[in-house]
Lab assay of single mutants.
Amino acid sequence: MAAGGDHGSPDSYRSPLASRYASPEMCFVFSDRYKFRTWRQLWLWLAEAEQTLGLPITDEQIQEMKSNLENIDFKMAAEEEKRLRHDVMAHVHTFGHCCPKAAGIIHLGATSCYVGDNTDLIILRNALDLLLPKLARVISRLADFAKERASLPTLGFTHFQPAQLTTVGKRCCLWIQDLCMDLQNLKRVRDDLRFRGVKGTTGTQASFLQLFEGDDHKVEQLDKMVTEKAGFKRAFIITGQTYTRKVDIEVLSVLASLGASVHKICTDIRLLANLKEMEEPFEKQQIGSSAMPYKRNPMRSERCCSLARHLMTLVMDPLQTASVQWFERTLDDSANRRICLAEAFLTADTILNTLQNISEGLVVYPKVIERRIRQELPFMATENIIMAMVKAGGSRQDCHEKIRVLSQQAASVVKQEGGDNDLIERIQVDAYFSPIHSQLDHLLDPSSFTGRASQQVQRFLEEEVYPLLKPYESVMKVKAELCL
């Protein structure tokens, strides 16, 4: 049975990233139509530049190519590739079939990587351009969430054990800070992308030097003109047959890092959902379990974690691919890159769409948070109580021993009897502590235990987050809708 299948058929496997999760716009960027249309555009740009620099290419040939950029006979191309065992030459023939007058000058002087690699770089750039505003929107939604809850005390956790208090907004800023680093890295790697350009079979530009009869300047002009037509500021000066596969490492490393950030955020949300302090959106008709109707599973956060793990592992592909590119190139890269580049971007696209949807509907339960604080705060307040007693004339050592005994009794009630923490009640009825009984409410005010959390939130948002989001103001209103 021949390899390949009808990918629109229910009898043929289709990647869930495309069929179930990723956005239509990201799927289109990695589609065959987008790819092969870009090949034709690159052939047109090459012909236009070659004509401008004096090669015998007519206006009629150029116009014929322009008129057929979208006229792609995919069936013919597939048949040609089956016959020739070469995808680029299959599309040269297919393009030439609908451009008979231009057929002889299509791909003039070029090698397969002229269309293959340059198209990949265009796709990487455009895919990054799709991700950047999506990530900015996630940051914006979380920034709104953090600002609104900047002063809401909550129990902090280290080692997932109760620690000092923080605020809900401050905790959210930990998430935002990681995503801001990801946004900066995505922008950097996007701006650092260079075009492969017009380089020939081993990167020496020998074929173009021959076409222009040894004119170095025209060869350099050709490279520059096509690079500018493709919208790049610069091209690699040095290439082998391909652009260095280190570029793929750079791009997928940034995406993998984004995956790590999203995994951490969504894990926190899942843990908070278990504590009943916070939940992701839950639709009115949504079913959490087929057997347990009360369940409210954090399905979206779980999906993000599941896909983020996949995204983090994909960076190993370009690392290994770059390491086995012998001399000017081997074909070890080809099949692998067809999979890992598309999957990385479709996965990143999915987790950003999902995280935006989550961040637009996060639900906080202040009463649950308050109750958990009441359970733990008495123990945390013991040092403040000791200091207040010393100020009232008591002995630190005597007070410490009193607190120690009462704390152990209260802990026994919590752990052995399943009761509430009654340390404060014990202190309130103990005559030894009568000098500070009137101060206990103040000493137990949760806001006095959150330090500068709310001020940190305000400063972080104003100095770091809002300036970073400013270039994306025009796209901030787009909502994230999930079908599944």
Rank of each mutant, 00 (worst) to 15 (best):
G5R: 13
S9V: 10
Y13M: 15
L17N: 12
A18Q: 09
A18T: 10
F30P: 00
K35R: 09
R37T: 07
R37L: 11
T38W: 04
L44I: 09
A49C: 09
Q51F: 03
Q51G: 07
T58Y: 07
E60F: 11
E60V: 08
E64I: 05
N68S: 06
N68L: 02
L69C: 13
E70R: 09
D73L: 03
D73K: 03
E81H: 08
L84K: 07
H91M: 12
V92S: 08
T94K: 10
G96R: 03
G96E: 11
H97T: 05
I105Q: 09
I105F: 11
I106W: 02
I106G: 02
H107P: 02
L108C: 13
T111Y: 00
G116Y: 00
R125V: 08
L132K: 09
V138P: 11
I139A: 06
S140K: 08
F145P: 02
S151P: 15
L152G: 05
F157R: 09
V168R: 05
G169H: 02
G169L: 05
C172M: 10
C173V: 09
D182G: 08
N185V: 15
N185G: 04
G197I: 02
G200I: 08
Q205D: 07
S207Y: 11
L209A: 05
L211D: 10
D216S: 09
D216R: 08
Q221N: 14
K233H: 01
F236N: 07
T239R: 00
T242E: 12
Y243G: 12
D248W: 02
G259L: 06
K264W: 02
R270K: 00
L271A: 09
L271R: 00
L272D: 14
N274W: 04
E279F: 05
F282Y: 15
E283F: 14
Q285C: 11
S289A: 01
A291D: 04
A291N: 03
P298N: 01
P298Y: 03
C304Y: 01
H310R: 08
T313N: 09
L314Q: 11
Q320M: 02
A322H: 04
F327A: 10
F327H: 11
F327P: 02
E328H: 08
D333W: 00
A335Y: 05
N336S: 09
R338H: 00
A344H: 07
F345N: 06
N353M: 09
N357A: 12
Y365F: 15
P366H: 10
K367N: 15
V368S: 06
R372E: 07
Q375V: 08
L377V: 03
P378D: 03
T382F: 02
N384V: 09
M389Y: 04
V390K: 04
A392S: 08
S395H: 10
C399P: 05
V405G: 11
L406V: 10
Q408K: 11
A411P: 04
A411H: 04
Q416R: 10
Q416S: 14
R426L: 03
I427S: 04
D430G: 09
S438R: 05
L440M: 10
D441V: 12
H442V: 14
L444T: 10
D445A: 13
P446N: 05
T450A: 07
Q455M: 14
Q456F: 06
V457L: 11
E463T: 12
E464F: 06
V465K: 13
P467N: 15
K470G: 13
S474G: 13
V475Q: 13
K477R: 15
K479A: 10
L482M: 15
L482S: 12
C483N: 15
